[in-house]
Nucleic acid binder design. Structure first.
Lengths: 334, 334
DNA sequence: CGGAGTCCCTAAACCGGTTTAGTCAACCGC
DNA sequence: GCGGTTGACTAAACCGGTTTAGGGACTCCG
């Protein structure tokens, strides 16, 4: 010890007033010499704070890996947390029942000070549930919404709209949509953006199919659309994985992409630019999203207010999976 | 309270002797009625255990999302941890220097009881470092090795060997390898498996290139190989992402897969079966690996011994990106 | 010169469990 | 009937910090 009481050390370490500058320096020097760091456990107990925030992900282990969202989002969260000595507690659970139990347990035994709420569903009970539990939360959603908690949003609608407008500009009229599972808010958001963009171009809403974000689901949805009475000349997918599988399914049927079918994805995943043809897709800054969400949650945990945040809109990345429809060409040449 | 002291409650909750069965039931009933759960913080402090294990991942945020390994591995870990009320503390850091600091900090402030060591490198300083820090660890590697800690291994060599033998059986003689970054143990392991399988088939070691597991790296490596004096008729890639990008790069050059070039991947990622052509690849049970690693680490943390574990070898998944080389066909038909 | 006001720092309570030492009643055998 | 065990439980110390109450020295002011 540097000749002071443990209370003084506590003051010195937390930059609180009431310690002479000289003493503070002496204490810090002693701590450095002894390679001493305050025990996280004791600090958490006495300050009644867990110094940890939680993320509960309700997805089957397999589908987790296929989605580029979570790894990037987590990386973003980490960027912010690490700088403040906080940590992320991660839980992966198989279904919604387990998800509820997870939140209950996290709140009951005080393992975390707050949580992130992702994959928001329609009429999602979680915001109210967490309010009842008194566990601070930040909601990750495609746009601000009525909610007891701050919402950190990246509006995916401009991205989808840009994709549709791009296709319309290329001459497409029959533009279908392969959406995610109905229950998600972002599914509805992307679906609405697609429909809205069609309407804005004075086109009737064309066919859409709900799939499950998986490769198999995307392929199957694509086949369904292509088999319909009026097959689309372009398909806007709600994520890259389904778009890639759909593109392959179309190619397997002998269709040429983009001549016979244009395809757009969503995510701009790592492979998107290295396919045949390279995938036109929508890129969102998921890392930045995670960073912003973490900053918001930390403010909230500290008792500060955190207004809703809306991040810059996503960007359409033009590659070669989109082009003018063959019918247009034929008309042109005829 | 159920008319007993807090010590008695502690005994009752931890199934320790010295509490009458009737009393125990009464205590548990009272706890349930009060919806009371022991405070994680207090328990961690007094029992000198963090009830948490850590995983430090040193990868750039972007590359993290591209790799199906971590999400699946984490999901496996969670399966085991959740069942025992333990939690996973995740840290994503950009480089090896930060990685060291992370381990130091985790050990110093006692946030975790043990850690997982992944992406083991040649002459990796981390096992010794953690031994010096006194922080239990479990090493995730492709095969058992000299190490102060238990090693949980999935031997990837049989998978690579199976891929090579499959290609040899198809008639390939010029089989190249696109490996991962040199520094990783699993890179060397897969490279050795490729070379060993060639030798076992009485073939000379053919060309190999180190890439970085990214799509761009895989494409570039592929072009290098195809531009060489003796281009391969088949390429064994160290992961799916590079294989997919390589396959597209070859196709873009006008090559037909598999007629002009056969391709195998590693991971069996979600898209692998939904490409054109579907990718022949090696599947490992990463979720099971995470589960086994977590079980081992928990034993270690409890002071029990944990022998090295070797999981079932990976499995070659045959799809259509591999086939007889065109030269062979010509020879056959000639 | 005495009292109020500051500034620094210490002593001790406190967070909510675990764990050791010790109390007390019932039971045992001789 | 009495010392010795045993079983069930309580009281209190303890984990390692944070935080409140308070004490001593010094300054300022009338």
């Amino acid at each position: 010890m540097a000749g002071v009481s443990k209370g003084a050390v506590s003051f010195a370490l937390n930059d609180r007033p009431g310690v002479a500058e000289a003493t503070r320096t002496r204490i810090l020097a002693a701590a450095a010499e002894l390679r001493w760091t305050p025990s996280h456990r004791a600090r958490a107990l006495s300050s009644s704070r867990a110094l940890t925030v939680g993320l509960v992900v309700a997805r089957a282990p397999e589908t987790l890996g296929a989605d580029p969202f979570f790894p990037a989002f987590i990386a973003g969260i980490e960027t912010t947390l690490a700088a403040r000595g906080q940590a992320l507690l991660l839980q992966v659970v198989p279904d919604q029942a387990s998800e509820r139990r997870s939140y209950d347990a996290l709140a009951a035994n005080g393992r975390v000070d707050g949580v992130f709420l992702t994959d928001l569903r329609l009429d999602d009970p979680r915001p109210a549930m967490l309010e009842a539990l008194g566990l601070p939360a930040v909601v990750i959603a495609p746009s601000p919404l009525e909610c007891p908690w701050p919402v950190v949003a990246t509006d995916d609608r401009p991205g989808i709209a840009a994709a549709v407008h791009h296709l319309v500009a290329l001459g497409h009229r029959r533009i279908a949509h392969v959406a995610g599972p109905v229950e998600f808010v972002h599914t509805r958001s992307r679906h609405a953006a697609w429909a809205g963009a069609l309407a804005a171009s004075a086109l009737d809403e064309f066919s859409s199919v709900h799939a499950d974000f998986s490769a198999a689901g995307g392929a199957e949805a694509t086949v369904r659309l292509l088999d319909s009475a009026a097959p689309p000349t372009a398909i806007v997918y709600a994520n890259d994985l389904m778009a890639i599988a759909g593109m392959s399914a179309a190619q397997t049927r002998g269709l040429h992409v983009p001549d016979d079918l244009s395809v757009t994805g969503f995510d701009d995943s790592a492979i998107a630019g290295h396919l045949r043809p390279p995938l036109t897709t929508v890129r969102t800054d998921v890392v930045g999203w995670g960073r912003a969400a973490a900053e918001c949650l930390l403010r909230l945990v500290d008792g500060l207010a955190c207004p809703d945040v809306t991040l810059p809109p996503p960007e359409l990345v033009l590659r070669s999976s989109t082009g003018p429809p063959r019918t247009t060409r034929e008309t042109d040449s005829a």
